[in-house]
């Protein structure tokens, strides 16, 4: 029924687009949202994206530091709505390498591209989780003792990522995996370096930065250390996580609660 309704509206929209062209109104989309968001539209958008956009944004749309193209799979920094995405696609972003799509590209395809970009991150408002946010918050500071290492809104430890807006960058599935299998996907920032200096002293800490000519770490007492390469006798990388797995310490429903709490940590909340 929903799909049929959308199809009907699509016809009306196409007529509207035609009249826009006739009257030479600006190409910006100003209202109406995206009416091209079926699976078919997403697939069309993906096809265009892989061909035209992936060189900078990556085949997986996770961005590219080298080109400066941002990750499109989480919260978007420059657009908060379908119309916002549409306008960026149509107009580009001045002063950056983000060029507009060709003028000749039909609005339909631009909306399909919007649908694809949206498909990369599910709308959190539509996600219903089994756990209790309140119970998760208690676990965070109680049985889980997560706050010993993680900060939320300036409160907590420094020995893990700041979780203030973790719900914007991790899906519920990823949060479950983070809790159960913390070694699976460790960001390089949270790798550790064990460094022995030329003075014979060995220090270990989180890998804050590893450059071509120097290293910087934070040890478990929150001390910051910087080494020039010529001060180092040897060092090794440890690429697993310092976080324990909660597979045994928390029950399944407690994991659900904690995930519900963590996923609620988003900017709109």
């Amino acid at each position: 029924m929903g799909l049929n309704a959308k199809s009907w509206w699509r016809g009306v929209f196409a007529l509207g687009a035609l009249s826009l062209t006739t009257f030479n109104l600006p190409a910006n989309a100003e209202d109406g949202g995206n009416l091209y968001n079926t699976d078919y539209d997403v697939a069309q958008g993906r096809s265009y994206f892989e061909r035209q956009c992936s060189r900078c944004h990556g085949f997986d749309a996770k961005g590219n530091d080298e080109t400066g193209a941002p990750d499109l799979t989480g919260r978007l920094n420059r657009a908060s709505s379908d119309v916002g995405i549409f306008n960026i696609l149509r107009n580009g972003i001045a002063g950056t390498a983000m060029l507009p799509v060709p003028e000749t590209l039909p609005d339909t395809l631009v909306w399909q591209l919007v649908a694809f970009v949206n498909s990369l991150s599910a709308d959190p408002a539509n996600i219903v989780l089994p756990g209790s946010i309140a119970a998760g918050a208690d676990l965070f500071t109680g049985k889980g003792a997560c706050n010993a290492c993680h900060m939320i809104s300036g409160k907590g430890g420094r020995l893990g990522p700041d979780l203030t807006f973790v719900g914007d960058r991790r899906s519920p599935e990823e949060l479950v995996a983070d809790l159960i299998m913390p070694n699976q996907d460790v960001e390089p920032r949270w790798w550790r370096l064990r460094i022995t200096g030329r003075d014979g002293i060995t220090r270990e800490g989180f890998r804050m930065n590893e450059s071509s000519f120097s290293l910087r770490i934070m040890d478990e007492d929150d001390n910051l250390w910087s080494y020039a390469n010529n001060q180092i006798a040897n060092y090794e990388r440890i690429e697993d996580s310092t976080m324990p797995s909660y597979a045994q310490t928390l029950t399944d429903s407690e994991v659900d609660d904690l995930v519900a709490f963590l996923f609620s940590l988003r900017k709109e909340n």
């Binding site: 892989e50 061909r51 035209q52 992936s54 060189r55 990556g58 085949f59």
Partner: peptide, 11 residues
Amino acid sequence: GQRYTGGGGRY
């Protein structure tokens, strides 16, 4: 005038 690459890569 369209990109013609036939695929891509992912780290």
